[in-house]
């Protein structure tokens, strides 16, 4: 009796422990899901590959590299806006998280680095100012869509929005050049 009780307790404890775990990385999707995801992301991946290769082919710490980086982020925003328009909150959350990571770890530090190295009054500096303004406008457009669009009531979309809030003003500081250009 005692042995049975003891075994049961151990099993319950193990089951509870296992249930409490959450995977660090998601397992590979099933083939049919992979196909669906490929179709949904085909155009986005194509754009990201092109901009990635362009980034590799431009010199470090140049406005040109920031430009390609900002275009990559714009591709992500376009995909988010499309998903938001369809009311696809899950996709919005997934893409917004990726966008947040990309801006926080890629675009923002690159912008800061390049800004620190070039003269803001030089043609390169002015170009950088415009790109920075565009990046900021992109982010504002995204936040506006997520707060007013079809997915605004989704709890997880709202959580993703909080992540975007952390990107400003430190992630994308206010531009020094007041240009209204957006894309």
């Amino acid at each position: 009796m005692a042995r049975a009780l003891f075994t049961l307790l151990i099993l319950v404890a193990l089951a509870t422990w296992a249930a409490g775990q959450h995977p660090g990385t998601a397992a590979a999707p099933a083939p049919e899901d992979q196909l669906r995801l490929l179709r949904a992301n085909r155009s986005l991946i194509g754009n990201l590959v092109s901009e990635g290769v362009e980034m590799a082919n431009t010199s470090h710490s140049t406005a040109a590299r920031v430009e390609h980086c900002r275009r990559a982020s714009r591709s992500l925003i376009n995909a988010i806006l499309q998903a938001a328009e369809r009311g696809d909150a899950e996709r919005v959350v997934m893409l917004t998280n990726l966008f947040g990571d990309f801006v926080r770890d890629g675009l923002s530090p690159l912008l800061e680095e390049v800004k620190a190295r070039i003269d803001p009054q030089s043609p390169e500096g002015e170009r950088l100012g415009v790109i920075q303004q565009q990046a900021r406008a992109d982010l504002q457009e995204l936040k506006l869509t997520l707060t007013t669009g079809a997915v605004r009531d989704n709890q997880r979309v709202q959580e993703s929005l909080k992540q975007l809030d952390e990107l400003t003003p430190s992630g994308l500081p206010r531009p020094t050049v007041a240009s209204p250009a957006t894309n």
């Binding site: 999707p29 949904a40 959350v93 997934m94 998280n97 990726l98």
Partner: peptide
């Protein structure tokens, strides 16, 4: 928290 339904590893 992202459901696996939308998470595409290649992307």
């Amino acid at each position: 928290e992202v459901t696996q339904a939308e998470d595409y590893p290649l992307l």
